[in-house]
Amino acid sequence: MNLREALRRAAALLLPLLCAALLAACSNSELHKQEAYVFGTRVDVTVYGETRETAEAAMAEVLREFDRLHRAYHAWQPSELTALNDAIARGEVATVSTELATMLTDAARLADLGDNLFNPAMGALIEMWGFQADEFVPRRPDAAALQAVLEAAPRMSDLVISGNKVESRNPAVKLDLGGYAKGYALDRAAAILRAKGIENALINIGGNILALGKKGDSPWRIGLQHPREPQPLATLPLYDGEAIGTSGDYQRYFELDGKRYSHLLDPRSGGPAEATQSLTVLVTPREAAGTLSDAASKPPFIAGDNWRPYTRRYGIDHALRVAANGHIEVTRELRARLQFPSGSAPVTVVD
């Protein structure tokens, strides 16, 4: 393993480890944690202030739900989603679960808000770049095949959803909910924990985080991963019902001929977005905050220097961007919450 790969892996593990360190001030009798590997990433659930039996039962149910969602909506292993994609390719009407129909309707709404920069219908493009695989194979897609997908312009608005029936006006639609499912899973986890009477918990799915209640007398405190260094970019308190979502070019990528190719693809060009290293949004308490934190980080990431109007479209005032050159821009509302380590790069505050 070369140094760059070692740093990348260290950075990928940093956020959960930082959270664990920040939580260590609690006594073991008050803090309970379970971990797993789902959605292609590390997930952990932490519960505060409950008996071990109560906490473990609730966390185990959450992890079972994560596993169900992973299997049901996997983009390239046999699942309900791949069955729907097969039906679309054949020009057929598919009968789907109520859950999937609801997810697709919501994803279409979020895609429209973001000018389709968040576009779950572009699964064919993701596959061409090799990101629909457990192991990345560094390769550039065939130029003609890529152009054909761009000309077909599959969008979520091509779907016709009527109850549990789904069809597409465009056979090029190939669904991939990778930019939506982790956020949806956060909301499902929160619903399960609340139903079990759990009032204080922190749910982390590969850096997508949702908070319930608090940690004793203090809010939960989390770290934002630095996109290039194995250290936190900043830390901040996270309050009851708030969710954090980050899109970064360090999460899934490969390097070829000295150039980084990330999984965050621009549907307009067909290639990876290159103007941003990471884009973080903090969603204040509202319905489906977790889902929004996942989907709403994609359009501003892809938009590059024009990122701020897209966070506004989603009603998000707390956001931070690290540009391709490492420059940090942060909204005034989020800057007031952040703690940067000494010696950090200069920060530009935007309205």
Rank of each mutant, 00 (worst) to 15 (best):
M122R: 10
V47N: 02
E65Q: 13
Y48H: 15
L256F: 08
R64G: 13
R268W: 09
V166K: 00
E199G: 02
V149A: 07
A211W: 10
L23S: 15
R64F: 06
H263K: 07
R139S: 14
V149I: 13
E255H: 10
L159V: 01
L150Q: 09
G290D: 08
V350Y: 07
T98M: 00
M1T: 11
A324N: 06
D187Y: 05
W129G: 03
A133E: 12
L175E: 03
L279Y: 15
D106P: 00
V283Q: 10
Y250T: 00
D67C: 09
R109T: 08
V347I: 12
G123H: 07
N200Q: 02
M128P: 04
M1G: 14
E127S: 08
P154W: 07
D158V: 03
D249N: 13
R268S: 11
E65Y: 04
R139G: 10
A55Q: 07
G178T: 06
R169M: 07
G91E: 03
K215A: 13
I192W: 10
T102D: 12
D305V: 07
R260A: 04
E333P: 04
I126A: 02
D351W: 04
S97A: 04
Q147P: 01
G206F: 03
I205L: 15
G197K: 06
L224K: 08
C19L: 13
P341I: 12
Q132D: 13
F131M: 06
E50L: 13
R140L: 15
L282Q: 08
Y180V: 07
L224F: 09
